[in-house]
Nucleic acid binder design. Structure first.
Lengths: 165, 165
DNA sequence: GTCGATGCAAAGAATTTGCAGGACC
DNA sequence: GGTCCTGCAAATTCTTTGCATCGAC
């Protein structure tokens, strides 16, 4: 099995910044407004997601929280992610390694970005490109389809792996 | 569990056509050239994939072949898809329903397309857009990354579901 | 005859679900 | 105090793997 290393390396124009505190506060408020109760486990998950530098899988979230001494059951992690995704507070990303990964979603397309995935080491790198966004927006308008989200995934070989051959 | 209906509805410019016979012949030749032996089960899988109108999962392939009286073990389907994907004869697509889906890949970007996924019924619809491709190509050239493949997935509500509310 | 391919069944991994107990409002 | 949330474990689902056997070359 290929070893997957997830590390964010900002590359091109407009380096994406982690949303951090803003996102966490907004997420907690949204959940409350939607009638959900607050709880320590859920807060721990929100805090981790909000401060993450990279896309995380449910297992990674559970493991990391356990390591930090705030263990949360995997089922709870999945259930939390389910709610967050339904409320569009997180964005789900499939990099093709067999598990779903999540990252905070910001309102109004703030820090909206896509991902480069290295076929060699599995590294995931975010990037932004206004022209690409415009092309997608225009396309969405032309289609007989109410387009909401979109994902763009580019696969290739990252600089590190490229140098090694 | 949401019922997923897969049906292809051509939409915008350049209606993608199923590659059919061409692809099947090319795939068989490529496999042979790569030193693989031919076999009835493998041919059955190739034939089904080559004539498919939509993205198929491993289970769907196995089920369909069983229904057609040419049963093929699931393991064989997975192993065949693995080889085909490595040789870039099929394109893997993750629509987010928990299983990987595959479609024939044509050489030289022929019939290259992307997908619209209906959040309501799960329908997958292919589309092509030259401008989007150009934006992605240019972007790839600018990045410090050897970009190979790319996937674009648009999610939204299809015309059928939109009408019903 | 050799070695790849197959099928079955077991193993693994990701995700979901049932349920009893605990916490929030 | 009712209801939502949690954790655990069992259940499901998808995918991979071990192994004896079969068949292409």
């Amino acid at each position: 099995m290929r070893t997957i290393i997830f590390k964010v390396v900002a590359i091109d124009p407009n380096i994406p910044t982690p949303p951090a505190a803003d996102w966490i506060v907004r997420a907690e408020e949204s959940l409350r407004a939607a009638g959900h109760r607050s709880s320590a486990p859920r807060s721990a998950v929100l805090e981790l997601i909000g401060n993450q530098e990279c896309v995380l899988s449910a297992r990674e979230i559970a493991d990391e929280l356990r390591d930090r001494g705030r263990p949360v059951g995997v089922a709870t992690v999945y259930r939390t992610l389910e709610v967050l995704e339904a409320m569009r507070l997180v964005q789900r990303l499939d990099v093709g390694d067999g598990s779903a990964r999540y990252e905070p979603a910001l309102p109004g397309g703030e820090h909206h970005h896509h991902h480069l995935i290295c076929d060699s080491c599995g590294r995931v790198t975010p990037f932004e490109d206004p022209r690409l966004e415009r092309a997608i927006d225009d396309l969405g308008r032309r289609l007989d389809y109410a387009v909401g989200d979109h994902d763009v995934i580019l696969r290739g070989v990252c600089p590190q792996c490229g140098r090694k051959g």
